[in-house]
Simulated scan of single mutants.
Amino acid sequence: MSEFGRGAIWFGAGLVLGYLGSKLMEDPQGKVRRAAVEAVSQGMTFKDRVMTSVERARENVEDMVAEARHSREGIKEAGSADPASEK
Rank of each mutant, 00 (worst) to 15 (best):
R56D: 11
K31M: 07
K47N: 12
M64G: 03
K76L: 15
R6T: 13
G21Y: 00
A39Q: 07
S85F: 04
M44W: 11
F46Y: 13
E38K: 15
S2Q: 00
E62P: 01
V50E: 02
V65T: 03
G30W: 00
E3D: 11
S22K: 06
D48K: 14
K23A: 11
R33H: 05
W10Y: 06
G30M: 00
R69Y: 05
H70I: 07
K76P: 02
V65N: 05
L15I: 12
V50H: 01
E38G: 10
V54A: 14
Q42S: 15
R69M: 08
H70F: 12
V16L: 10
V37P: 01
T45S: 10
Y19A: 11
P28M: 11
K23P: 01
A13N: 09
A81D: 00
L20P: 01
M64P: 01
V40L: 12
L20C: 07
A66V: 05
I75S: 13
A35Q: 10
A84W: 07
A8G: 00
V50T: 10
M25G: 06
D48R: 13
M1V: 15
F4T: 04
M1S: 15
R72D: 06
Q42L: 05
E73Y: 15
A8K: 08
G14N: 04
I75G: 00
R69K: 14
M44D: 09
E59V: 06
K87A: 15
T45C: 03
V40P: 01
A66H: 08
H70A: 11
K31E: 10
A35V: 04
M1K: 08
K76G: 01
D48M: 12
F11V: 03
D63P: 02
V54Y: 03
M44A: 13
E73A: 14
E73S: 14
G12W: 03
T52S: 09
Q42H: 14
K76A: 15
M25P: 00
D82F: 04
R72P: 00
G21V: 00
L15V: 07
V61Y: 09
S41W: 11
A78I: 04
A13F: 04
A66Q: 07
S80Y: 02
K31R: 06
E62R: 08
A78R: 13
W10H: 06
E38T: 12
F4Q: 07
G74Q: 06
M44E: 12
A39H: 05
L20R: 06
G5Q: 14
L24A: 14
A81H: 01
S80T: 09
G5L: 08
K23G: 03
K47I: 13
E59S: 10
D82K: 13
M25A: 14
H70C: 12
R6C: 11
V61S: 06
S22Q: 12
L15F: 11
W10Q: 08
E62K: 11
E38W: 09
G74V: 02
G43D: 02
A36G: 04
R72N: 15
D27F: 05
